[in-house]
Design a protein around this nucleic acid. Sequence first.
DNA 1: CGTTGTGAACTTATTCACAGCT
DNA 2: AGCTGTGAATAAGTTCACAACG
Lengths: 206, 206
Amino acid sequence: MPKAVVSRLSLYLRELQVLVRDDKKTISSTKLGRLLGVTDAQVRKDFAYFGQFGYPGIGYRCEELIQEIRGILGTDRMWLAAMIGCGNLGQALLGYRGFQSQGFSVQAAFDIAPEIVGSTFHGLKVHHLDSLPGMVEEKGIQLAILAVPAEVAADVAELLVQSGVSGVLNFAPVTLNLPKSVSVVGVDLAMELEQLAFAVVKKGEK
Amino acid sequence: MPKAVVSRLSLYLRELQVLVRDDKKTISSTKLGRLLGVTDAQVRKDFAYFGQFGYPGIGYRCEELIQEIRGILGTDRMWLAAMIGCGNLGQALLGYRGFQSQGFSVQAAFDIAPEIVGSTFHGLKVHHLDSLPGMVEEKGIQLAILAVPAEVAADVAELLVQSGVSGVLNFAPVTLNLPKSVSVVGVDLAMELEQLAFAVVKKGEK
DNA sequence: CGTTGTGAACTTATTCACAGCT
DNA sequence: AGCTGTGAATAAGTTCACAACG
């Protein structure tokens, strides 16, 4: 299965949730594809990797398809996460409503700076990083959102691995080299802007 | 040219900047690839789309290659950006140092909420969205960072287009449908966590 | 010698096109 | 009639492997 399929699955899910909010009951591969800029065949093939979810002559039932996708992605259960680093970005992410609504619950927050440890942001008290291993165990935390400065990201990531988390969402602008038992997804905001700059330049040339 | 090449270019750039900080003068495609988890052939082919930057027997000169990549991405000049939406996320992004260092300067910030308009975050005063078109023109703003709630994202994006921006970095969890003269890069934080959840689930099954 | 640049081989991903279901 | 699911065809992207270079 192509690995791009999984990111399209997230995209389909997001669009289906919009459709349900607008009281749409069913949607065809053609219409769903049009909304997202992919072909109808692509939509059908993507779902076909996981099962037969459609109804010939009808399309896909939105609510049902949402459940199927959530089951595939694993977001039908609640995932417990820890926020690591409560500076600018970490604080903002603690207040982000979109995580909770998609199946992610930030259970604990950590930092190392004396002026931040002990503070409360969006109802969550910040603990010292030293207490991370214990709390991961105690609370059953599976994922970490890493929002620390680049210089310390590698070391902190190492600590996360030792603490037993299974996945890291890395906002630090460095490539983490972790054991392959731990999954990593990187989000580099400056890189995204670079991609945008390139797209603009290319368009200007055409 | 494959479109994945451009995102790898950003990745190479980031790693090269680390290498330069560590006083490395040159690097081979094999070593650079190892650091990032791609093959040596991939590294060479990626650069080959844009020119001949390497030295047989030596590798690539880091400083030189950085300049080449910045030239390709268009980040050798400074890009002027506006922050649209100064809630949680917008405020955090205004304080993000990584943008400036990679060639992006946030010149103005906008919101619509009376309690936010007029405030100052990280040295930047928040204007009302109504003054956007004028300031885009006046300051020569090319890019917009869209950090508004999903419900209003489409309408605000429309205003951005009318104001004349060339590119939008969209943090709202919706697909924007803009004229193709305007480039859009989307970053959906919940989607990234979903990708991570899937990776963890899949690893557990194996 | 170590390393690039690149055509050719191969692998992966997307699109086509149509049988078959409702 | 409208739409899915899917094998076959096509296209895109990656790796191989080696000549040429400093």
